[in-house]
Protein backbone atom coordinates (compact mmCIF):
# COMPACT_ATOMS: atom_id res chain seq x y z
CA UNK A 1 0.00 0.00 0.00
CA UNK A 2 2.73 2.40 0.92
CA UNK A 3 4.47 1.84 -2.38
CA UNK A 4 1.30 2.48 -4.19
CA UNK A 5 0.94 5.78 -2.45
CA UNK A 6 4.49 6.58 -3.28
CA UNK A 7 3.87 6.22 -6.92
CA UNK A 8 0.83 8.40 -6.75
CA UNK A 9 2.76 11.00 -4.87
CA UNK A 10 5.49 10.95 -7.43
CA UNK A 11 2.89 11.80 -9.90
CA UNK A 12 2.11 15.10 -8.22
CA UNK A 13 2.15 17.39 -11.22
CA UNK A 14 3.85 20.26 -9.45
CA UNK A 15 6.98 18.18 -9.09
CA UNK A 16 7.12 17.58 -12.76
CA UNK A 17 8.66 20.40 -14.67
CA UNK A 18 7.90 18.79 -17.99
CA UNK A 19 4.19 18.49 -17.43
CA UNK A 20 2.19 19.95 -20.26
CA UNK A 21 0.08 22.97 -19.43
CA UNK A 22 -3.23 21.24 -19.99
CA UNK A 23 -2.37 18.42 -17.63
CA UNK A 24 -1.58 20.59 -14.64
CA UNK A 25 -3.88 20.89 -11.65
CA UNK A 26 -6.09 23.89 -12.10
CA UNK A 27 -9.11 25.58 -10.62
CA UNK A 28 -12.26 25.51 -12.66
CA UNK A 29 -15.44 27.45 -12.13
CA UNK A 30 -18.50 25.32 -12.58
CA UNK A 31 -21.81 26.41 -14.10
CA UNK A 32 -23.19 26.97 -10.62
CA UNK A 33 -20.46 29.44 -9.88
CA UNK A 34 -18.57 27.18 -7.50
CA UNK A 35 -14.88 26.71 -7.94
CA UNK A 36 -13.38 23.28 -7.81
CA UNK A 37 -9.99 21.74 -8.43
CA UNK A 38 -9.34 19.60 -11.45
CA UNK A 39 -6.40 17.25 -11.73
CA UNK A 40 -6.60 16.15 -15.32
CA UNK A 41 -4.30 13.20 -14.85
CA UNK A 42 -6.55 11.73 -12.21
CA UNK A 43 -9.89 12.90 -13.37
CA UNK A 44 -9.79 12.25 -17.06
CA UNK A 45 -8.33 8.81 -16.94
CA UNK A 46 -9.14 5.54 -15.34
CA UNK A 47 -7.38 5.27 -12.03
CA UNK A 48 -7.80 1.57 -11.48
CA UNK A 49 -4.66 -0.42 -10.94
CA UNK A 50 -4.31 -3.39 -13.22
CA UNK A 51 -5.56 -6.51 -11.55
CA UNK A 52 -4.33 -10.03 -11.82
CA UNK A 53 -6.99 -12.06 -13.57
CA UNK A 54 -6.10 -15.62 -12.86
CA UNK A 55 -7.13 -18.37 -15.24
CA UNK A 56 -10.23 -20.07 -13.95
CA UNK A 57 -11.00 -23.54 -15.11
CA UNK A 58 -8.12 -25.56 -16.43
CA UNK A 59 -9.95 -27.33 -19.21
CA UNK A 60 -11.85 -24.29 -20.39
CA UNK A 61 -8.73 -22.21 -20.18
CA UNK A 62 -6.91 -24.72 -22.31
CA UNK A 63 -9.54 -24.40 -24.98
CA UNK A 64 -9.53 -20.63 -24.76
CA UNK A 65 -5.77 -20.53 -24.91
CA UNK A 66 -5.92 -22.55 -28.06
CA UNK A 67 -8.23 -19.97 -29.59
CA UNK A 68 -6.07 -17.15 -28.34
CA UNK A 69 -2.99 -18.75 -29.78
CA UNK A 70 -4.50 -19.26 -33.17
CA UNK A 71 -5.84 -15.76 -33.39
CA UNK A 72 -2.95 -13.38 -32.87
CA UNK A 73 -3.91 -9.85 -33.57
CA UNK A 74 -0.83 -7.80 -33.96
CA UNK A 75 -0.71 -4.10 -33.41
CA UNK A 76 0.96 -2.35 -36.27
CA UNK A 77 3.31 -0.28 -34.19
CA UNK A 78 6.77 -0.21 -35.69
CA UNK A 79 8.96 0.99 -32.90
CA UNK A 80 12.24 0.47 -34.72
CA UNK A 81 13.98 -0.89 -37.76
CA UNK A 82 12.34 -4.28 -37.39
CA UNK A 83 9.06 -2.90 -38.60
CA UNK A 84 10.37 -2.99 -42.15
CA UNK A 85 10.11 -6.76 -42.09
CA UNK A 86 6.49 -6.78 -40.97
CA UNK A 87 4.95 -5.76 -44.31
CA UNK A 88 6.74 -8.61 -46.13
CA UNK A 89 5.32 -10.91 -43.52
CA UNK A 90 1.87 -10.10 -44.83
CA UNK A 91 2.91 -10.24 -48.44
CA UNK A 92 2.41 -13.20 -50.76
CA UNK A 93 5.62 -14.98 -50.02
CA UNK A 94 5.29 -15.35 -46.29
CA UNK A 95 1.58 -14.84 -45.82
CA UNK A 96 1.43 -14.75 -42.06
CA UNK A 97 -2.37 -14.76 -42.25
CA UNK A 98 -2.33 -18.50 -42.62
CA UNK A 99 -0.75 -18.70 -39.16
CA UNK A 100 -3.64 -16.76 -37.70
CA UNK A 101 -1.63 -13.56 -37.56
CA UNK A 102 -3.57 -10.46 -38.45
CA UNK A 103 -2.78 -6.80 -38.14
CA UNK A 104 -4.99 -4.46 -36.19
CA UNK A 105 -4.68 -0.73 -36.35
CA UNK A 106 -5.71 -0.03 -32.78
CA UNK A 107 -4.18 -1.25 -29.53
CA UNK A 108 -7.59 -1.90 -28.02
CA UNK A 109 -8.18 -4.80 -30.34
CA UNK A 110 -4.70 -6.20 -30.48
CA UNK A 111 -3.30 -9.00 -28.46
CA UNK A 112 0.32 -8.94 -29.57
CA UNK A 113 2.60 -5.97 -29.28
CA UNK A 114 5.70 -6.30 -31.39
CA UNK A 115 8.60 -4.28 -30.10
CA UNK A 116 10.37 -4.19 -33.38
CA UNK A 117 13.79 -3.10 -32.34
CA UNK A 118 15.21 -0.29 -30.31
CA UNK A 119 12.92 1.84 -28.21
CA UNK A 120 13.77 5.48 -28.00
CA UNK A 121 12.67 7.02 -24.74
CA UNK A 122 10.00 8.95 -26.52
CA UNK A 123 8.68 5.76 -28.09
CA UNK A 124 8.98 3.80 -24.88
CA UNK A 125 6.45 6.11 -23.34
CA UNK A 126 4.04 5.45 -26.19
CA UNK A 127 4.78 1.75 -26.10
CA UNK A 128 3.94 1.56 -22.42
CA UNK A 129 0.79 3.44 -23.02
CA UNK A 130 -0.08 1.23 -25.92
CA UNK A 131 0.62 -1.87 -23.92
CA UNK A 132 -1.60 -0.70 -21.13
CA UNK A 133 -4.37 0.06 -23.55
CA UNK A 134 -4.35 -3.49 -24.80
CA UNK A 135 -6.69 -5.90 -23.13
CA UNK A 136 -5.37 -8.92 -21.38
CA UNK A 137 -4.31 -11.55 -22.11
CA UNK A 138 -1.73 -9.70 -24.16
CA UNK A 139 1.65 -10.70 -25.39
CA UNK A 140 4.86 -8.94 -26.24
CA UNK A 141 7.24 -10.11 -28.88
CA UNK A 142 10.64 -8.44 -29.01
CA UNK A 143 12.64 -8.37 -32.20
CA UNK A 144 16.31 -8.03 -32.61
CA UNK A 145 19.39 -7.41 -30.56
CA UNK A 146 18.30 -3.99 -29.39
CA UNK A 147 15.52 -5.40 -27.29
CA UNK A 148 17.71 -7.99 -25.64
CA UNK A 149 20.72 -6.00 -24.58
CA UNK A 150 20.76 -2.69 -26.33
CA UNK A 151 22.08 -3.91 -29.65
CA UNK A 152 24.11 -1.47 -31.59
CA UNK A 153 22.67 1.40 -29.61
CA UNK A 154 23.97 0.13 -26.31
CA UNK A 155 25.72 3.42 -25.75
CA UNK A 156 23.03 5.70 -27.01
CA UNK A 157 21.62 8.21 -24.59
CA UNK A 158 18.18 7.91 -26.06
CA UNK A 159 17.45 4.22 -26.43
CA UNK A 160 16.78 1.73 -23.70
CA UNK A 161 18.83 -1.41 -23.42
CA UNK A 162 16.47 -4.08 -22.20
CA UNK A 163 12.79 -4.18 -22.90
CA UNK A 164 12.11 -6.67 -20.12
CA UNK A 165 12.78 -3.97 -17.57
CA UNK A 166 9.74 -2.03 -18.72
CA UNK A 167 7.34 -4.54 -20.21
CA UNK A 168 6.97 -8.28 -19.74
CA UNK A 169 8.29 -9.92 -22.89
CA UNK A 170 7.12 -13.33 -24.02
CA UNK A 171 9.32 -14.14 -26.96
CA UNK A 172 12.58 -12.77 -28.26
CA UNK A 173 13.71 -13.17 -31.82
CA UNK A 174 17.40 -12.82 -32.53
CA UNK A 175 18.65 -10.96 -35.54
CA UNK A 176 19.36 -7.45 -36.67
CA UNK A 177 16.88 -7.38 -38.02
CA UNK A 178 15.21 -10.79 -37.89
CA UNK A 179 14.00 -12.07 -41.21
CA UNK A 180 10.31 -12.71 -41.79
CA UNK A 181 10.95 -16.40 -41.35
CA UNK A 182 12.43 -15.76 -37.94
CA UNK A 183 9.43 -13.66 -37.11
CA UNK A 184 7.13 -16.47 -38.15
CA UNK A 185 9.17 -18.80 -35.95
CA UNK A 186 8.63 -16.26 -33.20
CA UNK A 187 4.90 -16.47 -33.71
CA UNK A 188 5.04 -20.24 -33.64
CA UNK A 189 6.97 -20.10 -30.39
CA UNK A 190 4.52 -17.61 -28.97
CA UNK A 191 1.66 -19.90 -29.87
CA UNK A 192 3.31 -22.79 -28.08
CA UNK A 193 3.78 -20.60 -25.07
CA UNK A 194 0.20 -19.45 -25.05
CA UNK A 195 -1.11 -22.97 -25.49
CA UNK A 196 1.03 -24.17 -22.61
CA UNK A 197 -0.50 -21.44 -20.50
CA UNK A 198 2.82 -19.72 -19.86
CA UNK A 199 2.12 -16.45 -21.58
CA UNK A 200 0.85 -14.62 -18.54
CA UNK A 201 2.68 -11.38 -19.20
CA UNK A 202 -0.34 -9.26 -18.41
CA UNK A 203 -0.67 -10.82 -14.98
CA UNK A 204 3.03 -10.48 -14.40
CA UNK A 205 2.77 -6.84 -15.25
CA UNK A 206 -0.04 -6.43 -12.78
CA UNK A 207 1.84 -8.32 -10.07
CA UNK A 208 5.12 -6.47 -10.44
CA UNK A 209 3.40 -3.26 -11.35
CA UNK A 210 5.29 -1.08 -8.90
CA UNK A 211 8.63 -2.40 -10.08
CA UNK A 212 7.77 -1.80 -13.69
CA UNK A 213 6.47 1.66 -12.97
CA UNK A 214 9.58 2.58 -11.03
CA UNK A 215 11.77 1.47 -13.92
CA UNK A 216 9.66 3.30 -16.42
CA UNK A 217 9.68 6.49 -14.45
CA UNK A 218 13.40 6.36 -14.05
CA UNK A 219 13.76 6.76 -17.79
CA UNK A 220 10.80 8.83 -18.82
CA UNK A 221 11.44 12.15 -17.25
CA UNK A 222 8.27 13.83 -18.28
CA UNK A 223 5.84 11.31 -17.00
CA UNK A 224 3.12 13.24 -18.68
CA UNK A 225 0.46 10.66 -18.24
CA UNK A 226 -1.46 8.98 -15.46
CA UNK A 227 0.05 5.96 -13.81
CA UNK A 228 -2.57 3.68 -15.21
CA UNK A 229 -4.25 4.37 -18.46
CA UNK A 230 -6.51 1.66 -19.48
Amino acid sequence: MSEEQNINQNNEPKEDKFLAEENKIRLVTGPDGKQFQVNPLDDYFCDKRPQVVAPKNKIIEKFLNWARAESLWVLGFGTGCGSIEIPPLLSPRFDAFRYGVQMRPTPRQSSVLIISGYLAVKTLKRAIRTYEQMQSPKYVMALGSCTINGGMYYDSYNTINRVDQYLPVDVYVAGCMPRPEALLAGFVKLKERIKAGNAEGANEYAEKFDWYKANQKKIIKNWNMPDYNW
Partner: peptide
Amino acid sequence: EGWDDIPPYRRDFDTLKYAEETYF
Protein backbone atom coordinates in the same frame (compact mmCIF):
# COMPACT_ATOMS: atom_id res chain seq x y z
CA GLU B 1 11.35 14.78 -24.85
CA GLY B 2 12.02 15.75 -21.30
CA TRP B 3 15.76 16.13 -21.71
CA ASP B 4 17.38 17.72 -18.69
CA ASP B 5 21.08 17.05 -19.24
CA ILE B 6 23.51 19.13 -21.23
CA PRO B 7 22.70 19.16 -24.94
CA PRO B 8 23.71 15.71 -26.13
CA TYR B 9 25.69 16.55 -29.23
CA ARG B 10 28.19 18.60 -27.29
CA ARG B 11 31.51 16.91 -26.97
CA ASP B 12 31.54 17.02 -23.20
CA PHE B 13 28.43 14.90 -23.00
CA ASP B 14 29.45 11.28 -22.50
CA THR B 15 26.78 9.16 -24.04
CA LEU B 16 28.16 5.79 -22.92
CA LYS B 17 28.33 6.90 -19.33
CA TYR B 18 24.86 8.32 -19.49
CA ALA B 19 23.50 5.14 -21.07
CA GLU B 20 25.13 2.90 -18.51
CA GLU B 21 23.85 4.93 -15.64
CA THR B 22 20.36 5.37 -16.98
CA TYR B 23 19.49 2.11 -18.65
CA PHE B 24 20.02 -1.41 -17.50
